[in-house]
Amino acid sequence: MTGVLVLVGTLVLATVAGLVMRSRNGRVRTTAATVATVATSDLPADITSVLAPGGVTLVQLSTTFCAPCRHTRVLLSDLASRTDGLHHTELDLTERPELAKELAVLRTPTTLAVDRSGTEILRVGGVPRRDELLAALQPHLT
């Protein structure tokens, strides 16, 4: 009897979790901390060192064991090649969990959009939604 209850409970919880994750997946997030940050960069050097000299850089954080990272790579590199002032670079966090901790990244892919001053504009968890991402980046380009 306990087993049946656990089974039903697990399926209900998993369904709720799945629906929540589906709705949040690929959504652009601008955190309060990000908005409050002034021009000075507080991102670790591992990130600021890979930024393109001008415009906005999409820093994609990936791991080896990550299928959606591949889809994200294809989407972002295409977006960057078609958009003036937008660049795409990828960092592998597989061997660097401490960097994930520093950036408060819980899952891959997570994409950070960083402007030329090294300030994080927004971040996206999961495969980004192309139009939504582009719209959010537009004010920061040029």
Binding site: T63, F65, C66, A67, T94, P97, A100, K101, R107, T108
Partner: peptide, 9 residues
């Protein structure tokens, strides 16, 4: 797959 990073952390 998605929690790989979390497990590592």
């Amino acid at each position: 797959c998605e929690t790989y990073l979390l497990i590592r952390r």
